[in-house]
Nucleic acid binder design. Sequence first.
DNA 1: GAGCACTGC
Length: 948
Amino acid sequence: MPNEPSVKTLVSEKLMSFLRFSHPLVVQYTAAISQNANSPEEIVDKLLEYGVDGGDAIRSLAADLFLSVSRKAAAQGSNSRRDEVKKNEILARKQRQYRLIVAESDEDKDHDSGTGVAYSSNFATGVVVGEDNNKKKRMATDDREVIRALRKKSRQEYLKKREKEKLQQLDDWIVEGLELSEVERLMYKHNKEILEANKKFSEYVGGSDGGEYRFPEAYDGDGLIDQRRRFGAASKRDTGGFEKLESWEDHQLQKATVKFGSKNRKREADDYQLLFDDSLYKLEGQLLPGKSLDDEITQKLDYVSKKHIGDGRKSLPIYQFKDKLLQMIRDNQVLVIVGETGSGKTTQVPQYLHEAGYTKQGKIICTQPRRVAAMSVAARVAVEMGVKLGHEVGFKIRFEDCTSEKTVVEYMTDGMLLREFSSQPDLKNCSVIMVDEAHERTVSTDIIFSLVKDLARQRSDLKLLISSATLDAEKFSDYFDCAPILEIPGRQYPVDILYKQPVDEILEEAVAATLHIHVTQQPGDILVFLTGQEDIETVEEMLREKVKHYGSKMGELIIHPLFANLPTELQARIFDPIPEKARKVILATNIAETSLTIEGIRYVIDSGLCKLSSYSPRTDMGSLQVTDISKASAMQRAGRAGRTGPGKCIRLYAPDHFQNQMEDNCVPEIQRSDIVSVVLTLKALGINDFKNFDFMDPPSDESMIKALELLYALGALNSKGDLTRIGKLMAEFPLDPKLSRMLIAAEKYGCAEEVMTIAAMLSVDNAIFYSPKNLQAMAENAKKRFEDGDVGDHIALLRVYNSWKETDFSSGWCRENFIQARSMKRARDVRDQLMNLMEKAGIELNSNPNDLDAIKKAIMSGFFPHIGILQGSGSYRILKGLQNVQIHPKSGMARVQPNPRWVVFHELVLTRKEYMRHVSEVKPKWLLEIAPHYYERKELEKFFPRLL
DNA sequence: GAGCACTGC
């Protein structure tokens, strides 16, 4: 066939007619989808998923696409992406094997290379992961050799070319190998094997029979990793935290002999047998001996703490590893540090580096996921170093910069570092970056990973430390080109883990378990992990009732709820001292898993559940769902019982559930959230090729497409996909891009002051109004006053802020009006920050508080994709979408009669139903005025012919 | 007439 149209032409021409509003980058993505599809149906499915519905026409388009793609593939003998994945896997496996081979053969003779001394020297207790330390050390050394060789060949390259490069590198090895050392000879031999294996593999997958390659165990047919099998495979492999956890769990399960059933309990708690007979509470579990520190290390720690009484720094576990750590940092550019809480890594490592002279070359930056952590850690380090906070040691968080020109050790939030990147992409005044709590995988840390990985390749003088709690270490190491792992023990006492298969409702079980511990166990406080406020309040009530019922038969039980929305003064009550013989129970959400450490906890009850936010790019809707926690979380929760002494943890689920149902780690946040602002941030950093951007876990294609489309619609990107002037400006604001766009547009409508307030109020989530159960009617009334005249929720928020401002930001006023002072103060901080940025950007801060239409038009400039039209049924339809939604009952517009026909909304949420949150009425003709590039007159006339 | 896990710029 002459002049066969290229895939790209087909896609852009035909598809563009379906994706009537489509960004060129979206077309690129669509092409990428079709490259990977196995059949026309698959393409159609994908496109339908993305909301492109063109009926038969699109089906024939898909068939065309597929044909041309397969022809092209046949012509070039190219492999699809999944083959690439397989090949990369083979390479990786080969490399791993190769390391083993080198390590083993190394054992036979006295290998005396200069670099080899690095960490095999003089440190008997040095744990570098795994049980056979000597072997591991040597492997780590050789890893470094490999990395050096690889680095030498490929700096500054992305995944796209990776496979090709790897092969090329191997080739180079073989050609160059003239004077070979023993190690090199082995490498040569092995590389040749890899090359041959690859060649065979290519022939195999490229073969005409279309046979499918399958991996022996750990990988499924799609080349994707099956988590469970991977977990099994990982434990059989050489190194890593997987093995550690798994084998430990296995060990415990096998060893378990002591029963902790009703028999024991009766003996221990005869007095209560009437209360706690079998029908009331049955604990089917095993008493597991629990996790304990290595004896040698425990002894050493004890010895050290005795020897250095009064010297806190030296009694920390990490002190034992100081020399080794410095040595490893000296010899490697990237180091993964695994250390549990209490090991002292966050405070000590930067100090060691400072003492070792790293700060002479530049600052040491240490990132934290939380503001409080960044501040408190910096404060402590300042004390330890005997300097004033803000001088040599400082911290930098939003709204608070406590650093100076003198500062050489800087703690900051991860989001802050991301901001720093945009003003100084090479971070040239810094010598070490330590990413702490990396296992939490916040969106910011994930992006920082990619950026620093790249930066490290450009700047060989930059040192990178990735510090994490155990589980992910291997993954981090793999991501950073097989960086060595240094493991530091934490101060962790043994925790016995008991499993309880739930029979009743989980809340009932939690109550029963709490009471069981209370009457049968030694003194010590109890921490119960539940999903949210509602559950916590229910359990609190149930517990109080039980306690009242059994009266003096039971010791006193002091119950404290704990969740983020709880007023701070009530949160602080968990630290109140309690009377002797009483026991404290804390009913907490995830807040107690990471953010808050409570001393004196000896018992943990783990429901195994948590609420997890998720976002669907297809429907643009967010929701909170009760989900199983991950294995990592379960371990973290259990660990909370062993901070001050040996403890116990009751898991309200079966061991089998833990082993087989729970994921190893939670899905990283970046895959669960709206990534528009991430994409804008990356664009602003000059990153254009998202498809090949080296994410540790990439967000879905779908959310990427939606994000690009939105940014294009907002005018942040031009048709080439480059950042526009407006886009650059938008990236400056620490806001959702829709809010930034609205803010920038406000100047034009003469109401920048007002819109600034609204943006600030909207960006402090939904925690402005609160209504206590007993005073609901009053709270409702108070709220209604701001909604007077059915002005819409946006204007109501503006009124709230301005009224508060008139009372000179009074907290008393907040209390009277059922408004959360905490949120208001935050809104004020955000507003101040926005004002500074607006001034810096040269945007005029004009004001027109009475022209509500102008304000709404400014809002629409950012939120024109969020338009709902009233349907006959009383529900609303999203203009550029298919969902039917309703006005959230908490919105002031919900009770307006007749219902407004056209509304703009801030966001969609899925709770009991699909709701629009923060709604205001708008006029349809504004749409044509503000977003003529997005809506066509014809399209709008369909709904409301007369209004246009 | 419903409900807000937790962070961060």
